[in-house]
Design a binder for these strands. Sequence first.
DNA 1: ATTAGCACTCAGAGAGACAGAGTGCTAACA
DNA 2: TGTTAGCACTCTGTCTCTCTGAGTGCTAAT
Lengths: 342, 342
Amino acid sequence: MLTDRQLLILQVIIEDFIHSAQPVGSRSLSKKDEITFSSATIRNEMSDLEEMGFLEKTHTSSGRIPSEKGYRYYVDHLLSPQAPKKNEMKLLKSVFVERIYELEKIVQKSAKILSELTNYTAIVLGPKVNEHKLKKIQIIPLSPETAIAIIITDTGHVENRMISLPPSFDINEIEKMVNILNARLVDVPLTDLKDKIYKEVAVLLSRHIQNYGSMVSVLADTLTDTKPEKIFFGGKTNMLRQPEFHDIAKVSTLLSMIEQEQGFYELITQNPTGIHVRIGRENQNTVLDDCSLITATYSIGQEQVGTLAILGPTRMEYSRVISLLSFFSRDLTTLMTKLYQK
Amino acid sequence: MLTDRQLLILQVIIEDFIHSAQPVGSRSLSKKDEITFSSATIRNEMSDLEEMGFLEKTHTSSGRIPSEKGYRYYVDHLLSPQAPKKNEMKLLKSVFVERIYELEKIVQKSAKILSELTNYTAIVLGPKVNEHKLKKIQIIPLSPETAIAIIITDTGHVENRMISLPPSFDINEIEKMVNILNARLVDVPLTDLKDKIYKEVAVLLSRHIQNYGSMVSVLADTLTDTKPEKIFFGGKTNMLRQPEFHDIAKVSTLLSMIEQEQGFYELITQNPTGIHVRIGRENQNTVLDDCSLITATYSIGQEQVGTLAILGPTRMEYSRVISLLSFFSRDLTTLMTKLYQK
DNA sequence: ATTAGCACTCAGAGAGACAGAGTGCTAACA
DNA sequence: TGTTAGCACTCTGTCTCTCTGAGTGCTAAT
């Protein structure tokens, strides 16, 4: 439906606009090497492209800027994947050379590097904790009424939570209880803990522990109230560098949304495996009307565990970001699989 | 050296400017209830105050704004402490009514509430971890080469770190080692751990564990590489709401500094106990030239453990913020003392 | 010592002019 | 018939000018 020439023009306009942030006019286009025809011809084609909804004008006699539909077409059909440059690769790999083991630290560092490399905001969804299996439970009494429960998963994730002991609870029975818990619950996925506690462990505890009743519910609550997967951000204020956000009123709601890290969980987990691009209003959130979000997933073995995302203006360097994300998610998957696959 | 009338004028100008963010003119001043003399008189006094360095003009025929020296004088001599309002008090107290036990969560919530109450950026320095004493060490093997070390302090702080086991290390000896460590190191302040490991524990380990040498250094490194006290922020983007920062160029370096949380540790730990105000260039940091920082300390028992701080424009509601901080730090001290004092 | 009055200053808003970059349309061209 | 040259037109951004309002500083009167 689009001629080759129209495709070329659309592509060049979008790529020009991505770098200049200025509406692109026919005359400046005609000067480019890849364009061999005159500005008048370009004007005609532009006019057609506008009619079809791929381009827009900011005012009657301005140059053209891509519409959301234009970006969408560009992303779907015109992208030329470009391998990251040497020095970019080096920076990417730097996440992996340091000997870091904790999942969360790797994830955090990833967010930092991705944001530095792109100059956009990086959002990385950490590993899904509750699909991991229990390695060990520890309960350490602090005072007659309080104790710390520590849960260690097979992926090296440690979570700890204060619990208040039931008043009737005999502190000396903690060790006994912990033994029972460990004997029964090791290798159980975190999601199944609650169930298992009520179904199996409660009975056991009742045999050995006095006043076990209230303790069971405290335990069950504590152990299953696992945090949702943690989100890490990098370059939260990078949006300020984009010329389209040089207006405080516009950027401030966006920045507070980013600061509070709210709503991003749903936003970046909507997509299945692979790389996905959501442009402007496709995000279904007025705050993000001028933003695009690119998401990629990473895995441990076959199991998808997390998401990488880059949030930038709709005028985003799609091909660069997509390449970076696809390289990075592949490397991250390799690393994670090596480190954590059973 | 300043007459009562000059003091009154200075105070009214500052308080007016704090609320309006506009230069204050003689005529608008003369209309205020507390001012009984004419605008011409005020002009004369203003001129004197300017000569003495307490006021400034933005241009030759503008109204006056306070200088740093003016704010300083105001903070030192003219502040009228005002008790927080009922609903503010209620919000303040809300940190304490929920049954949260972990120090860090209390601290984090404090930052949030302080920032919401003031509309400025709150910075809260968490408890000094390494002055706390070791309650328990756990080492849990994950794979033949890696294990997790978990350190629990008497204040309920849990830290965990992956360690890579020396290749020659026999995984079955971990339990033995942990027992030795716990027998020797419990109740030792975190700061003294390294010393104690080399001086006392190494000898013991050498008797019971093969290849103890490399393990000792791994342990010592791991256990003493404690993070510095953690800093929590609230309202990181609140600066955007201040009219003096309605210019992106001005605010963006400030915001990135806040985002990276860098440099604030030194900034807010400079002061001894009590409430301190640093105004504009007193902060010794060009990025903060237009900002003021108010710090307060809180304690557990007699031991000072942390700092609360509010970062705002130099045109800050000093008296309100100071009152809030002093109330809050007192309450926080009470709570922490009750919860954690031995 | 205080105040009224007046000349002066400056920022900010609004109007008009102008250059530059762009468009759309028409007519000529290959 | 598709392409191009040419021209009239449009809109933005910038500059300048003017005007107003809010302010000052100074002087003379109270």
